[in-house]
Amino acid sequence: MEPILSVDQLTKKYKDFTLDHISFQIPRGMIVGMIGENGAGKTTTLMSIFEMISPDSGQIRLFGKSWRENRKETLQKVGLVMDGLNQNPRLYCKDLDNIYRRIYKNWDSRLFYQYLERFSLPLNKKIKSFSKGMLVKLNFALALSYHPELLILDEATSGLDPVMRDEILELLQEFVMEEDHSVLISSHITSDLDKIADYILFLHQGKLQFLRSMEEIENNYGVLHCRKDFLQVLSPEDYEAYMPEDFSCKVLIRNKQALLGRFQDLVMERATLEDFMLFSTKGVLPCQD
């Protein structure tokens, strides 16, 4: 099956930042988490999909079609929840129902009101009376109510309490149970991605570091705490980066199975997504020794 989203050599240059030839594909039926430090280019990438910014070069294909030529048709099937991108506060939820059913062919009013009830959102109050968490829930209700095939979330769960975040994560997992549905979620809450993501896309300083499956990350990567002299024993191929501490080192091991085969007494922790981000920004790369 063709990928639901295909980005090829996407480039965007600003004065102090360049999104540098990003290429990746989002397969169908998967949740892909996008991680990266602030300013890595995550939002720039997502905004390019919606033509909120115009890339300098590159191709974006949605549902196998060029997004520029088929914008109207493809955006009928894409839902977006973006932190800070909220509805006009002077409107009511019923106004949004009337607006969206005129925009989206597959708009499902019944489903929308079901979500409003599920999220306990009031029908008779203007949106300006909603809290931040309520606004996020409303955005999810809107994005899910026209039966999209691709959901794109940009820091969508920030501002939600842990209980609500858990419910949203459950919703996302239900969403991808349809084999042709996918989710691309950009988030700093890496613990959420640890729970639900199938693939991780890691951006750093405008460059794509990797797109790997969570299974591969869990099986191959680990964090080793060791003495500094032990680092000399390791070869540069064994690790991605290390962070020196006062009397020891933390090392992000690249192929822990192979290393455990050589040093059977080693104790390694599971590498979390947060570890990847920390090592990429604060770590020392092997070639920098």
Binding site: F50, E51, K72, L75, Q76, L80, N86, P89, I103, Y104
Partner: peptide
């Protein structure tokens, strides 16, 4: 005012319409 203060125009770009 709605476009400027409440990102109405940005939201419009997510809708299935041409410019």
């Amino acid at each position: 005012d709605a476009d400027s203060n409440y990102k109405g125009r940005m939201l419009s770009m997510t809708f299935p319409f041409s410019k």
